[in-house]
């Protein structure tokens, strides 16, 4: 690793101020950033840990019923909140491994937007709102492709608000080495329709599968999408699976998620 300064502020305001320095970078749980630093693929002058900020921790319910998760909440905390939002808790409980879940944060995951990460599927699949230190961004505007988001330099994900669906489920088919999603599908049924978000599959990062959403909004059952096929153009092809295979898996996992949610 290149060396850097380290700060651990206790308020969002102090964190934002600390991130104003040139080449300063926010540190969530570090479960992706620290391995990246070890490879010397990043060279921040300063890391600003968000772990000490009390106002970014914890899970609560907003007046409109949305589940609000502090940006610095770790996956294990979300995984333990199945009474609040079972679909999201199930997803969080499958990220990485127990030690990773003890450190990794939802804010860090969404800020990084790894194309195979799980949380982006939940955020997009629920139409969540990503709250930062200076604005609220709806998920449909937030994800901008692999490792790209609407976040500005120095902007911190302080909270994520999930409208709680009537039914939801996340199905993840693990890449056997990294245990990230080879393909992951989050299905959420709301009063006004169904949302389907897919991670791991596309070269453009997390995306919504519009055809499946339309079919499922009309009939929320696995049969409704039995014959629906996703075009493999633009799907990731690598050592672990061809683009055709990934496209196929999206269909399988979507059906399974619907069956599990229904």
């Amino acid at each position: 690793m290149y060396n850097f300064d380290f700060e651990k502020p206790s308020t969002i305001a102090d964190a934002v101020a600390a991130l104003g320095d040139d080449e300063a970078q926010a540190l969530g749980g570090g479960q992706t950033l620290i391995p990246t630093l070890k490879q010397r693929l990043a060279s921040p002058s300063k890391l600003v840990s968000l772990k000490g900020i009390g106002e970014m921790q914890g899970i609560c319910i907003a007046d409109d019923g949305a589940v609000c998760i502090g940006g610095a909440s770790c996956h294990a905390d979300v995984a333990g909140s199945s009474d609040v939002f079972a679909g999201l808790a199930g997803l969080a409980g499958g990220i990485g491994d127990p030690a990773v879940r003890a450190r990794g944060t939802i804010g860090g995951s969404l800020a990084n937007n790894d194309p195979a990460a799980c949380y982006p599927a939940a955020a997009l699949g629920c139409g969540a709102t990503i709250i930062t230190n200076n604005r609220a961004i709806v998920a449909d505007d937030y994800f901008e492709g692999m490792f790209a988001t609407a976040l500005e330099e120095g902007e911190i994900v302080t909270e994520v608000r999930f409208p709680v669906p009537e039914a939801s489920n996340y199905q993840k088919f693990e890449q056997p080495a990294s245990r990230f999603a080879l393909v992951g599908v989050f299905v959420a049924k709301y009063a006004d329709g169904v949302r389907v978000a897919v991670t791991g599959a596309s070269e453009e990062g997390v995306f919504r599968w519009a055809e499946a959403e339309a079919a499922l909004s009309a009939n929320f059952s696995a049969e409704a999408i039995a014959d629906l096929k996703l075009d493999s153009d633009g799907m990731i092809a690598d050592l672990h699976g061809t683009s055709e295979y990934r496209a196929h898996l999206v269909g399988v996992l979507t059906r399974r998620a619907v069956a599990a949610a229904a």
């Binding site: 056997p176 080495a177 990294s178 690598d238 050592l239 672990h240």
Partner: peptide, 11 residues
């Protein structure tokens, strides 16, 4: 080498 770490070499 495409599988040059535990991210791609499945143990």
């Amino acid at each position: 080498l495409l599988s040059a770490s535990y991210m791609d070499y499945a143990m």
